[in-house]
């Protein structure tokens, strides 16, 4: 590079930018990204908080009503159902972690063709949730679906999974677990690859095997993979929207709503444009998520300090 002049010019004579280059450059590089992120992510969060104190149909004048949206939520039966369903999603979705670990252990071998098997097992994660939803709604079709055909072949009665308010949510969660398990599997396969073989051998010499080996030697070494699996699964559970929208559209009788879906329904659908009420639901969902986000950031912060 021909920038020789910069080196022989006395410091004081160089331009202001040149003298402060190292302090200024990061800000110049951050500017476009931070600007985009502020406009589309940071400010909208604050705006949503603000909108949640108003009664607003999205077009006309917004009317300030204080905490009324929140007090209304307290008595809203559908909000309560959504909240309970969110809890079901959170708890049951975590099953993806042990399930993913089991499949990863099953596939962690070196037989011929195992690479192809691993990628094919990972397949469900690559497909969009919309397609997964469609596929599973056909799987659950009453009478003609694969599940019912199988049940009838075994001599049981058919089960209209998505038409029954008692089962529909579980049916959707099962569909969601399919790609999520695949994701956890790939995390654990990567983790297992990095397990220290010497520790495993040492433990074997000490007579550890099977479950004890897994529990005391392997799982502790998989901690980073487990942490990420936990993060993505929690986020995935609270973000569930696509599957519900495709498979049941909240029904039957609103029994499969979760907060993310109920919010959308209130703010943007044929049920009317209640932006303020929708924003209040979003704020509740955000605060729930914030608990987890704070925990994730705290873990990351400790690690950053540890470096």
């Amino acid at each position: 590079m021909s920038d020789v002049s910069g080196r022989i010019t006395p410091r004081a004579q160089r331009g202001w930018y040149k003298r402060n280059e190292i302090a200024l450059t990061p800000w110049l590089f951050l500017l476009p990204g931070v600007l985009f992120f502020a406009v589309y992510v940071v400010f909208p969060i604050l705006q949503s908080f603000n909108i949640s104190f108003y009664k607003w149909d999205g077009l006309g004048e917004a009317e300030y009503i204080g905490l009324k949206n929140y007090t209304d939520l307290m008595g809203d039966r559908n909000f309560e159902i959504s909240l309970w369903n969110n809890l079901r999603w959170l708890i049951l979705y975590l099953l993806a972690i042990p399930a993913g670990l089991m499949i990863a252990l099953f596939l962690n071998q070196t037989v011929t063709g195992i690479r192809l098997y691993k990628s094919l097992f990972f397949f469900p994660f690559v497909i969009s949730q919309v397609v997964v939803g469609l596929v599973f709604s056909w799987f659950y079709l009453p009478d003609s679906g694969l599940l019912d055909s199988f049940l009838q072949w075994l001599g049981f009665d058919g089960l209209n999974v998505l038409g029954n308010p008692n089962y529909a949510t579980y049916g959707i969660i099962a569909a969601g677990l399919w790609p999520q398990t695949a994701y956890c599997m790939i995390l654990y396969l990567t983790g297992l690859n990095a397990v220290d073989p010497e520790q495993v051998e040492a433990a074997r010499l000490d007579g550890a095997k099977g479950w004890r080996m897994l529990w005391y030697v392997i799982i502790p070494q998989l901690k980073p993979a487990t942490f990420i699996a936990f993060v993505v699964t929690i986020i995935g559970a609270l973000r569930s929207f696509d599957l519900i929208s495709i498979m049941t559209n909240g029904g039957p009788f609103g029994s499969t709503r979760v907060l993310s879906f109920y919010m959308f329904e209130k703010a943007l659908s044929e049920y009317g444009f209640r932006m303020g009420y929708g924003a209040a639901i979003a704020v509740v969902l955000f605060l729930i998520m914030l608990l987890f986000i704070a925990y994730f950031l705290w873990s990351m912060y400790r690690e950053e300090r540890g470096r």
Binding site: V41, G58, R239, M263, L285, F286, L297
Partner: peptide, 13 residues
């Protein structure tokens, strides 16, 4: 943190 927020909190704005 922004990457983890639920989409719904951004939706209306």
């Amino acid at each position: 943190a922004g990457n983890f927020v639920p989409f719904q909190i951004l939706m209306v704005p």
